[in-house]
Design a binder for these strands. Structure first.
Lengths: 339, 339
DNA sequence: TTTAGCACTCATCTTCATTGAGTGCTAACA
DNA sequence: TGTTAGCACTCAATGAAGATGAGTGCTAAA
């Protein structure tokens, strides 16, 4: 592995490069971080670091730039987590919790804040319906043949769908169906809705059962209601790596397309906690000079969504990781309280 | 006013410039649009058009570029509306109507399509709650002290809000309150909810009445639930006028901020039908090299929202105007059907 | 009134030299 | 053996100078 001095040099290069966005030379390092050795020694170390793939040189007479491998080593080993003071923590928490009543705004506010604090693009996947527990189901008769189905899910999320039926129902009938449905569904999650439950509903409630299963339950399990939001797209245009409009464009195009954005985040949502994908570790070709820092968020103990930051590989990892972590856990806390 | 030939020249300059984004010279016009006169004559005409402010010359040895005044004359007088074939119309209508069941998706789909077809940014203001007619109000008891308020508004829009009360209510009580509320509200709009209705509700329903008014009705009339969406932000980065990243950034920053975007669209939503703001006609300084083409959309006869396109002043006005018009009216039609 | 001709302007492109940050290598030193 | 000073070398970036050409305005003739 890398010896102590190599680590110091690597770290110095990364931190300098993150700050300036310019290839960093041996002299600069000798001057700024006094390692007690001369530029020449640092040059030797840098040559070694380049040979082992941690650094890379844009051209022979330029300074060094960290490679993806270099960043990876940095986030895994070198980086010291940024810590927030009680006060900062409080500010962030309060900022989000102002919206605690409505889940969607809560989530939007969390992304907005994350984008603001990191000066990068922030993305979030809203809670996956199929992970949530039913709390209440209710059918409301609007007129002759239209019925409003209301589903209340565990963290206070309300979904509704208007359905049309051939047959008409009386309020009393609907009430009865509502009660029966409630008994059947209360406390289980979408994911647990298997074919058995579906056929029971169809059997027990006739036409309305069929419509319910088709439109409401199947529909919602299929698209899972996965909403993706992003915020702060303008921020990355400040970064020097996106002065080239074309590069910025391909990134924004991904953000405009929900599916691609979702597939981008799907990897990260598998593991718990903060997940970092640096440059080429990223499956999407267009994203290979970007890094992605994400974290899952929870309702109680269940992972329900993902929130994260997209920025250039040259990123203040320590800060961003801590912010993502902090905001994800604030969000989890608030959503769990909504419960 | 402008004589026939000047109009032809102006039109030629605009259409050429829209296509190429390069200042257009007298020769080019003589070659492409055969007006039957020599470049020298066209030069004279162009000199006149410049003097009267319709054209403008970036520097003395460049061709001419249309001024805002020039574009204004073009959209008001010269432009021939683009017409769509039955087939094109059908495609567009079907494309949107695939989502007719859910208002929000309907609106999002309309913007997505508009952005795609114009290769510009498309924005939409979702229906203003205060313009919509109440259809149904229902209170559902979730547990001890939490009550779900469901409001169904005319074009099938459902709003809900969770409220907490000190006092606890029985299902029967809630049913009674629901019925009474329904009678009071059915058929009127948010806007018509005056202080009288508020105090009646507070008087009649005690604690729950107060909470209802505060949280639900006042809350909703205040923020009006005005949602703004945008789509196709990546598109403008293709336009040559936005190769300068800074210019693109200020525009994207506006789009990231809901309030600014709303204020941008507020002018347009006053008049019915298609509204065009060219360059400096636009109040926002950052938008003064952009044009905005918007149209209102309706539920029945009531204007409920605005949809439009943001692009560089150099814009295919004829096409964009027709598309905005077409999509706004398709949207109106579909929303009215949802009713 | 229109047009051909011509001198003039000026952004853009190309070329070429200059600059300077940064390197690798070598030899001397601790 | 590891460290450092010195030096030649590389190469992107900057800028000046010249060439190019698209386009104009003006004048005089048709």
């Amino acid at each position: 592995m890398l010896d102590e001095r190599k680590r110091l040099v690597l770290r110095a290069v990364i931190e300098d490069y993150v700050e300036t966005a310019e290839p960093v030379g041996s002299r600069t390092i000798a001057r700024k971080h006094n390692l007690g050795v001369s530029p020449a020694t640092i040059r030797n170390e840098m040559a070694d670091l380049e040979e082992t793939g941690y650094l890379h040189q844009p051209h022979v007479s330029a300074g060094r730039v960290p490679s993806d491998k270099g960043y990876r080593f940095y986030v895994d080993v070198l980086m010291e987590p940024h810590t927030f003071s009680e006060r900062e923590y409080g500010v962030i928490y309060r900022e989000i919790s102002g919206y605690y009543r409505e889940m969607e705004r809560l989530i939007r506010e969390a992304t907005r804040l994350l984008a603001l604090l990191t000066q990068s693009i922030s993305v979030v996947v809203a809670p996956r319906m199929d992970r949530l527990v039913f709390k209440h189901v209710q059918l409301v008769l609007l007129d002759e043949n239209s019925i409003l189905v209301i589903l209340v899910l565990q963290p206070g999320i309300v979904k509704n769908k208007l359905i049309k039926t051939e047959q008409s129902y009386s309020p009393a009938q609907l009430h009865e169906i509502s009660t029966a449905l409630n008994q059947k569904l209360k406390g289980i999650t979408y994911r647990e809705l298997g074919p058995t439950v579906f056929s029971e509903i169809i059997r027990d409630f006739g036409e309305i059962g069929t419509v319910l299963v088709e439109l409401v339950f199947r529909g919602l399990t299929e698209d899972k209601g996965e909403q993706v939001y992003s915020s702060g797209t303008a921020n990355i245009l400040q970064q020097p790596e996106f002065q080239d409009v074309d590069r910025a464009r391909v990134l924004l195009e991904i953000l405009d397309e929900k599916e691609r954005l979702l597939s981008l985040l799907s990897d990260a949502s598998k593991s718990r906690g903060v997940h970092i994908a640096i440059g080429h570790e990223n499956p999407h070709e267009e994203m290979q000079d970007c890094s992605l820092v994400t974290s899952t968020y929870h309702v109680g103990r269940d992972v329900v969504g993902t929130i994260g930051v997209i920025g250039p590989t040259r990123m203040e990892y320590a800060r961003v990781v801590s912010l993502v972590d902090l905001i994800a856990s604030s969000l989890s806390e608030l959503l769990t309280e909504l419960k």
